[in-house]
């Protein structure tokens, strides 16, 4: 108890140091950068009325976050719906692995900013293009971790499946899937993190309402404190998502 209190206090100290640096920078180095206090003053309307809708791009921070989260959820589920079976195939079949691994290694490091124009060309609409980008960028950790998980299934379990003469379906549901589940969840956690990173880029370029779209619009209208509000919101939400997935992952691991 004493220890966790100390940890908490220390993390607050860290927060204050960064806040102090922010204040110092805004006062002395970059006069255009609003101080923490000014940021709060100018953006409290968004925070105190989080669900208010005043216009298409002028909405409470709760609504903006909800739009973004919804979009991320769609892209993320698309990513794991494609990534999980792909990971299974790569892990289970050496032929499949040899065939597609080089391509995957090639596609993996491509930035979301590079995919988005391609999505726009393909779908001619911003929403599917955004989902395409989120899914394509966030898929890889799921693919790689699922693949690793399948390869790491202990030989013992595979022997059991063999000597019990389990049907292919039973083998999958009773041996492969439960043995791979912890790895898959690690992949899902990392994928969700990336999906959230990509949302900002996707919304900036497509101009759709959401935290990222809001950030870009406020940059264009020169209201810098709202940029900071967006940045902080993105950080808080990303942190919360990661903690939630981490919690689920731990639950799974103890089973």
């Amino acid at each position: 108890m004493q220890n966790s209190l100390k940890t908490f206090a220390l993390s607050l100290v860290g927060l204050f140091v960064v806040g102090g640096l922010w204040t110092f920078l805004s006062l002395n180095v970059a006069p255009d950068l609003p101080s923490p206090w000014r940021t709060w003053q100018e953006s409290k309307i968004y925070v105190l009325n989080p669900w208010e809708k005043r216009g298409e791009m002028d909405q409470g921070i709760g609504l903006m976050t909800a739009y973004s989260l919804f979009r991320v959820a769609k892209g993320f589920f698309l990513a794991i719906a494609i990534g999980t079976p792909l990971g299974f195939l790569l892990g289970a079949s050496p032929t499949f692995f040899k065939m597609f691994d080089p391509t995957i290694q090639l596609l993996r490091p491509i930035s979301p900013l590079a995919w988005l124009p391609l999505g726009l060309i393909l779908f001619r609409q911003s929403e599917p293009a955004a989902l395409f980008t989120i899914a394509l960028c966030s898929m890889w950790p799921t693919v790689i971790n699922t693949m690793t998980g399948v390869r790491a299934i202990p030989q013992d379990y595979l022997n059991v499946a063999r000597v019990l003469r389990l049907s292919p379906w039973k083998q999958f549901t009773k041996v492969w899937l439960p043995a791979t589940l912890p790895y898959m969840f690690t992949g899902y956690r990392l994928s969700l993190g990336i999906a959230w990173l990509v949302i900002v880029a996707a919304e900036m370029l497509t101009g759709t309402p959401g935290v990222g779209g809001f950030l870009w619009q406020e940059y264009n209208s020169l209201i810098y404190s709202h940029i900071l509000l967006s940045i902080l919101t993105i950080g808080v939400v990303g942190f919360t998502l990661d903690r939630m997935m981490g919690f689920a992952e731990n639950k799974l691991r103890t089973v």
Partner: peptide
């Protein structure tokens, strides 16, 4: 086949481990 290291599936209960073999046979 009986293995040295038991080779039970850890996500199934003792009963489920045995029943899985019975079902498959």
């Amino acid at each position: 086949f009986i293995f040295q290291n038991y080779s039970l599936l850890p996500w199934l209960s003792a009963y489920e481990n045995v029943r899985l073999a019975v079902e498959a046979t």
